[in-house]
Design a protein around this nucleic acid. Structure first.
Lengths: 203, 203
DNA sequence: AATAATATTGCACTTAGTGCAAATAAACAA
DNA sequence: TTGTTTATTTGCACTAAGTGCAATATTATT
């Protein structure tokens, strides 16, 4: 029993431990990304990352479970926002349109350089490329779960699974097309809209 | 100058070298798969595989470029057949219908036990799961190329990209649904047809 | 049989990742 | 402050995948 310091229960008033942990994790990610961009992914060892972040090699693994995981740092927040947006939509609109609108809105908020840099990095390593694909699969699953929350009729589940698959796929194809264009004029949002339009055309 | 042995040029009359190489590769794959099923993927070392196949550990890498690659052995032949079938279809039918029909036809020819065994294996290891996803991405690309061969109008390329994406996606979702069903009564082909039907419904 | 081309092997090496136990630092109670 | 509990950091030894290289063995060629 003994009093909880000041504020009760919720928001446990981040102590020194939590803060340092958060900062260290952030520092590792920043330092690693910088090294990746200069020396390449495969050319950067965990020893180098640990040294640059001021920790031991062993400690790295208490922050990230693998070298690959560094790249995924921060990306979860993005898809969480997308899901949050989607959960706010009305069940009256068509699921595919809802997802498209939410995606288009989100994609416009990204900075171009960051996206290209991270994407190029991912293309440079086999294991990162593989990791990227599994991430799409995970996102598809999350999206499907969210869709089921909004459109709750059980008889539509099979269709919603297809909507999730098609949406993540359209996003993937759109981003690939956007990345491959020479000169980078058109915004990613346009590629995304075109991809969803193409779906209707041929199907 | 100097006669080509007996038959000219084409089909260079497989010599001892080629035959042994083919046999060794086959033997490694068989032996490895057997070990994977008994000891698990991560529980099977390359040393064990090499020993069981009667080669040195170093030699393994002249047959497969990684441990993961063993699983993919033989799968290429399957997708090659699918592509070959597709290339025979007429440009008059709708691309998506053509792909669906070819897939349904192909999937019926698989033996159930094999599929389940390999699939369970893939689920058991992170790196194999990642590999499976990249394989889907590769198949999507191959399928897109084939579609462009049959339906040659440049203005339809964007749509064909979507058809490829959607088709591989439908197959992926169908196989996942088929695998997860308890009791394994319905054939995979039915799941595949339902998946393609669901596409039309919600889109 | 001699020679050229290719395959196999052993060896040393790098790197990612894990288990464990000792040392260190933060949180908490008196 | 001091002592105690609890979480974190670290070093060390280890496993296993994968690579480079040079020596050896095998197959092909003339």
């Amino acid at each position: 029993m003994t009093g909880i310091p000041s504020r009760a229960g919720i928001a446990p008033a981040e102590g020194l431990r939590e803060r340092k942990r958060r900062e260290t994790r952030q520092r590792i990610a920043e330092v690693a990304l910088r090294l990746f961009l200069t020396d390449g992914y495969d050319g950067t060892t965990l020893d180098a990352i640990a040294a640059a972040a001021g920790i031991s090699r062993r400690t790295f693994f208490s922050y990230f479970k693998s070298k690959d995981d560094i790249i995924l740092f921060g990306l979860d927040a993005d898809s969480a926002m997308l899901i949050a947006d989607l959960l706010k939509t009305s069940p009256d609109v068509a699921p595919l349109d809802a997802v498209r609108d939410v995606m288009v809105k989100r994609i416009a908020s990204y900075t171009t350089e960051q996206m290209i840099a991270v994407d190029n990095l991912m293309m440079s390593s086999e294991s990162l490329l593989a990791r990227k694909q599994t991430r799409y699969a995970e996102q598809e699953q999350l999206l499907f779960n969210a869709l089921c929350e909004v459109w709750r009729q059980p008889e539509r589940r099979a269709a919603l699974r297809m909507v999730a698959m098609v949406s993540i796929g359209a996003m993937r194809v759109a981003l690939a097309g956007w990345r491959e264009q020479t000169g980078q004029r058109k915004p990613a949002a346009k590629f995304l809209r075109d991809a969803f339009d193409s779906l209707r055309t041929e199907l």
